[in-house]
Design a protein around this nucleic acid. Structure first.
Length: 414
RNA sequence: GCGGGUGUAGCUCAAUUGGUUAGAGCGCUAGAUUGUGAUUCUAGAGGUCGCCGGUUCAAUUCCGGUCACUCGCCCCA
């Protein structure tokens, strides 16, 4: 803490960044409501056990990439690295099964102890959508559609490509995994060093290795589709035809994988090439085994999370806030009247700027910077005539308007 | 955890092959009509040259370390 800097990988968000991110959240909320999703908020920290159980103890993600600490009562707590585990925990804790299928949306900060790079921070923010309790492929299609329309609402849909894959059901996965390990063992010496260690830890990850030599091997590696059970194949076909019916294009990407056991069937990502190495803006899939693994009743689920920072970076423009009306009083009496007028106009729904200090010149200059449409100048003369000077800040012309006619005049100008 | 790049004013960047007062644009403050902005003109404020150490008569400049930012690798729940 040598200087007053934010902690590595965290940052202050203000100005245009803050406005862009707020816009991402509000558009998402609007779309989620249209899809009949309900808001949910879960704590930013949980018992470490919640994330440990969902990740599996073996993963060194648990040890190395989570913000874990002990509180004064000796509890092991972790700042949430993702949304799904917390929401699944809430589903169990709150007995939400009684309500049948739950459709939730949420947004908030996440924490991962990683080396920061473009579009990747230690504290970052996510949108999240989950459908819990629905086993059929219609839910998968619905959740992907929600993602797509969110991107559309943000005007970035055409900068992304939907990548789609199926991991099959548990039986398919077992068979595929075995075949994959078998295949790569046979070519062990040709694998990159990274992938040789992946072979033990997480063989599916070899499929999206960035190493060129690995990629060549992956070309002729076993394909998950060849190991699908009939049910798994039907499920994937149903998801694809559901997307086709909506006219949603996608790229079938067999390299799109999920490392953990509870993932099954649908895996998808909306990916962009505009953000360097961190191109996934929305990623999700089906996790039918998760809630059971957490200690709840067997419950299917499907959902996604989207990176707010990444989406905000993709926005073409910073969304404009409405242009205000600036009220500019001259003198103490006018200042009092100005505060009352500002209050009334705001009450009627206008966006109004009223500076706390400054002479006319400074206030006009400020109004200009705030991109005000009009200035309402109120001096002794105007006050005496129960009127204000209505000045158009784009053109420069100004007219004296009776206060009683102000609503009408503003309406005319608008 | 590993590798590349960068660090000079609030912001974007110059400059000094090691030498005396480190510059510009934008922004900010004030003035050119004490009731009129956005244009123009003038003046002003603002810098431990990221930090610590080394070499040197002399370091913002060269060297080492460190911190931060940045791009990528690993990882990606």
């Amino acid at each position: 803490m040598s200087k007053l800097l934010p902690v590595r990988g965290t940052r202050d968000i203000w100005g245009d960044d803050a406005r862009r991110q707020a816009h991402v959240v509000s558009e998402f909320q609007a779309v989620a409501e249209r899809f009949g999703f309900d808001p949910i908020a879960t704590p930013v920290f949980e018992f470490t056990e919640v994330f440990k159980r969902t990740l599996g103890d073996t993963s060194d993600v648990v040890a190395k990439e989570m913000y874990t600490f002990e509180d004064r009562g000796g509890e092991q707590l972790t700042l949430r690295p993702e949304y799904t585990a917390g929401i699944a925990r809430a589903f169990i804790s709150e007995g939400l099964r009684q309500f049948g299928t739950c459709k939730f949306y949420a947004h908030g900060p996440m924490f991962r102890y990683e080396r920061p790079q473009k579009g990747r921070f230690r504290q970052f923010h996510q949108l999240d959508a989950e459908i819990i309790g629905e086993a059929g492929p219609a839910a998968d299609v619905d959740i992907i559609a929600l993602g797509y329309q969110t991107l559309q609402a943000l005007g970035v849909a055409d900068k992304t490509l939907l990548n789609l894959n199926s991991l099959g059901d548990a039986e398919s996965r077992r068979a595929f995994r075995a075949a994959l390990v078998d295949y790569f063992q046979g070519h062990r010496s040709k694998l990159s060093e990274d992938s040789r260690s992946r072979l033990e830890r997480n063989p599916l990850r070899i499929l999206d290795s960035k190493d060129e030599g690995d990629r060549a091997l992956v070309e002729s590696a076993p394909k998950i589709g060849d190991y699908f059970t009939a049910e798994a194949a039907d499920f994937f076909a149903a998801v694809k035809s559901g997307l086709d019916e909506l006219g949603l294009g996608y790229l079938e990407n067999p390299a799109l994988v999920r490392g953990l056991d509870y993932y099954c069937h649908t895996a998808f990502e909306f990916v962009t090439d505009a953000l360097g190495a961190q191109g996934t803006v929305i990623g999700g899939g089906r996790y039918d085994g998760l809630i059971e693994q957490l200690g709840g009743p067997p419950t299917p689920g499907v959902g996604w999370a989207g990176g707010i920072e990444r989406l905000a970076m993709l926005l073409e423009h910073t969304p404009e806030s409405p242009r205000p009306i600036a009220i500019i009083p001259i003198g103490e009496d006018a200042a009092t009247a100005a505060r009352k007028l500002a209050f009334d106009l705001r009450g009627k729904g206008h966006s109004v700027e009223l500076s706390y200090s400054g002479n006319v010149k400074k206030r006009l200059s400020r109004a200009n910077k705030q991109k005000a449409v009009f200035a309402l100048i109120m001096g002794e003369e105007e006050l005496a005539g129960r009127s204000v000077m209505l000045r158009d800040l784009d053109g420069g012309e100004q007219t004296l308007v009776l206060l009683s006619d102000l609503d009408h005049a503003l309406e005319q100008k608008a």
